[in-house]
């Protein structure tokens, strides 16, 4: 039995209150409790965080890059979802 038995975990850190958790990196740990502690030691030793999530890497479902076009392109031709789509006369405020 080797280190391979320590699975890989993805680490998400909330850098301060009011912000979302963002992906910080990954690490190995035998279980969730140790993963949290290892993450605390590794990714917040310069006070980079106030909250940590750890997720087994194997549990992450990702979109495939091969599906890039069908997945993300339809969103590109809907400019009316963005405020810059609309023309407002100059001088109109608070819009």
């Amino acid at each position: 039995m080797t280190n391979a038995d320590w699975p890989l975990w993805e680490v998400f850190v909330r850098s301060r209150r009011g912000l979302a958790h963002t992906h910080a990196g990954s690490l190995h740990a035998p279980d969730a409790e140790m993963a949290l502690r290892n993450a605390r030691d590794l990714y917040t030793r310069r006070s980079e965080g106030v909250s940590i999530w750890v997720v087994p890497s194997a549990e992450v479902t990702a979109s495939s890059p091969d599906e890039k076009d069908p997945f993300f392109e339809p969103a590109a031709d809907k400019p009316y979802r963005h405020p810059t789509f609309y023309e407002i006369p100059e001088g109109v405020k608070h819009l």
Partner: peptide
């Protein structure tokens, strides 16, 4: 040590 932690998990 690594084996012990894996066994515990």
């Amino acid at each position: 040590v690594r084996e012990a932690a894996a066994a515990y998990a």
